[in-house]
Design a protein around this nucleic acid. Structure first.
Lengths: 366, 366
DNA sequence: TTGTAGGCGTTATCAA
DNA sequence: TTGATAACGCCTACAA
């Protein structure tokens, strides 16, 4: 046995693998077995608690493993298990503002099942994407999660049709609607914002938002329309102002609203950044928030929303949950379940001062 | 041979591995060999371009591999290579504002060497950290990169001393100063900011910054002092205002400065967020930027700096480079090199309008 | 030029 | 209760 173990030392150096760890390579189960005076098979059983073993043997093996600080090689284990217990995370929005929470949620779901995550920053480059997918398939990942920077459909990931790897999309859809995807419920978010503004007595509500080519923009607006129509409140087209995702556009929109002398008592903003621009422009013009105009944002980007004067009431997309659900769906598929279609995670209203729910009680609602 | 290949199908199901991919498991090199009518060894050589093979054989093997869309199992390859070609990424600042660029840089360095990244979000939890380190060691990662949310020293990662895994710290130091770490050169950054303000003719420069318990705060201040002293300009203690990393503190600081009737023609801000607060407060008071007071921030947080009125001159920490260098140092260690100590990546001045380099030319410097 | 055999570290089956 | 043995998928030295 001793000989067998030592034979490891005259193994040739791998061609591209340099001399790392070779001086004192990690102990193998053979070392443990030798030290405990048992066979490798027995050591394996002892360590994994399988089979019928004498208690004393089990303990000897454990002791040996502890002494050598033995950690079994997941590489070898996974080889026989036929799975890698890892999934690939393809991110398009290289660590942008939205990816963070989504990734955290995914990580959460995976951690619960002891799966590891391979991080791949695709950066919107098709070449990189193909390369990464190839690598991940070579690593025999159990599945793929694709995250995006926007919720619009994207061309599906090309994983060979031969031995298909399950794919779940998070904060982005596949253009093939059957592919499992998890996104925030933007329509419900829009509805939520408007219902809140109606609740606090506002009726002349404008919407300053991003470019209409974003699905999110269209869906939030749809939700807004639905809420207003349910309440029997009119929405003149002049009050819907799509533009850009920037503070500058928020400020500009205020110029427009003021120039046109539009009568408005609330603005639903398509993003917190837009809200910030609006808030600043209103203050410049001595228009009070929320007394004159109430504000509701979208994103709950706390570093912005909390610092605003007054702090911003906004819609939280529950991105962490979006990620977690995506992870859970992937795990379900890996476990043999069928998962199809887009799942929407509800948004949540975060009330702060900019919508003046407190102030409003004291004045007659319009 | 046929029999050997088919024997794969009566392999027992792994105990915890569900029925994924088993219906049509991926082709192995044996399938390729069979289809090409050669032995497994020959197929291996053909695919890897080793040994002396007849060109026609090589081509037949390649064709067979292509037909089966064969992708070699990295699991198996790495098992014989004795390396995983993967590194663990332990992030403390779960995808915060600073992690993004740092991670991108790390990813860059790794991608160049075909290494994969295991993502582990430690969330500042020691238990999670231990667990992840254990997992990563089990996966036999070639190394570890630890990123932080601030550059101050942290207790070193506990990787067993037995078969030590190389660790490099990025945007954080180990409390053991010999451990390899990569951080921005905050002192040089502070110097850069001040030299720029001096260049554009400012002399009464205040510093509004974060809590002094941050090493970054102390080092930036040190750089500021050095630059001023080199220029023979005085820095009264009353002009140094440590506080919090928030817009609110920026606004408050303006109150203080105005209340004390301090004569100031420039403010060096410890963060872009603080600068934003200062900028807003100055505008509220009709103090012009840069005409009355020039502003330089720190971070180059573009989404903020670009949207400011006027856009903010600021210091960029080159975080992506910090990450890249950290990755490269890890690779060097993996390759057998010795790497020790803290390496500082220079900051960079980003000139925008808030420091009024243009405006200033036209007025006499103070 | 090609095939055979042994081994990477682990687990599971079956025999002892 | 334990120990051989044969996989898992791949690579490489050596024999043919």
């Amino acid at each position: 046995l001793d000989h067998q173990v030592n034979s490891k030392s005259n193994v040739v150096m791998p061609p591209d693998g340099p001399a790392v760890g070779s001086p004192s390579a990690r102990p193998t189960i053979a070392h443990v077995a030798e030290r405990a005076g048992v066979s490798v098979g027995t050591a394996s059983k002892a360590l994994n608690g399988r089979g019928q073993l004498k208690e004393s043997t089990r303990e000897r093996v454990w002791a040996a493993a502890r002494d050598l600080s033995f950690v079994p090689s997941a590489q070898a284990q996974n080889l026989v298990r036929g799975r890698s217990f890892a999934v690939g995370l393809l991110t398009t929005d290289s660590f942008g503002r939205f990816s963070g929470p989504v990734m955290r949620g995914i990580e959460d779901a995976m951690g619960a099942e002891q799966l590891s995550l391979f991080l791949c920053d695709v950066r919107g480059d098709a070449i990189r994407e193909r390369h990464y997918v190839q690598t991940l398939i070579a690593r025999r990942v159990d599945g793929l999660i694709v995250t995006g920077r926007r919720t619009d459909p994207r061309t599906p990931i090309a994983v060979g049709a031969v031995a298909p790897v399950p794919v779940v999309y998070a904060y982005v859809r596949s253009s093939h609607p059957e592919d499992p995807a998890v996104v925030p419920d933007d329509e419900q978010g829009g509805r939520l914002a408007i219902e809140h503004l109606l609740d606090v007595g506002r009726r002349r509500i404008a919407h300053v938002t991003g470019p209409t080519r974003f699905l999110a923009v269209r869906e939030r607006l749809k939700g807004m329309r639905a809420a207003l129509s349910d309440a029997g409140v009119d929405l003149p087209e002049s009050l819907v102002l799509p533009g850009a995702w920037s503070e500058a556009w928020g400020r500009e929109a205020v110029d427009l609203i003021v120039a046109e002398r539009v009568d408005v008592d609330a603005i639903f903003c398509g993003s917190d950044q837009i809200a910030r621009g609006i808030s600043d422009a209103l203050r410049d013009r001595k228009i009070r928030v929320p007394d004159d105009i109430a504000l509701v944002g979208f994103d709950n980007w706390e570093i912005l929303a909390n610092e605003m004067r007054p702090p911003l009431t906004t819609i939280d997309m529950n991105l962490e949950k979006v990620g977690r659900v995506a992870g859970e769906r992937l795990l379900a598929i890996v476990g043999g379940a069928e998962e199809h279609g887009v799942q929407k995670v509800p948004c949540q209203l975060i009330v702060r001062e900019s919508s003046g729910s407190a102030t409003l009680r004291e004045r007659p609602s319009a």
